[in-house]
Amino acid sequence: MKRPLFLAPQTYRQRRLRDAARILPVLAAFLLILPMLWGDEASDIRQTGSDGIYLFVVWFLLIVSAALLARRLSSEPDGVDAASPKDKK
């Protein structure tokens, strides 16, 4: 199935919005696994206070971005889903 090469700006924005929604969990996983790389190589001892603050701040930011994305995504007209590029081969 042939898809058009150029899209209307609005459709283009929506597609990128979906891309963002797909990238977000990858970013989340990266940021949440990041603390593994901190501290001395030799020991696995970490500071509870600072790590906790980092994790909760990241968590909160993820929630805020997810909320923003969800709002924009759910205001899409119905039926656009059907053309979702992910689900087409």
Partner: peptide
């Protein structure tokens, strides 16, 4: 085990934030 308990909630967070998948 300190902050390790957070993993039990961080996993679902990734899944829900990535609901589009």
């Amino acid at each position: 085990s300190g902050l390790e308990f957070l993993t039990i909630y961080l996993g679902p967070t990734i899944v829900f934030v990535g609901w589009w998948w």
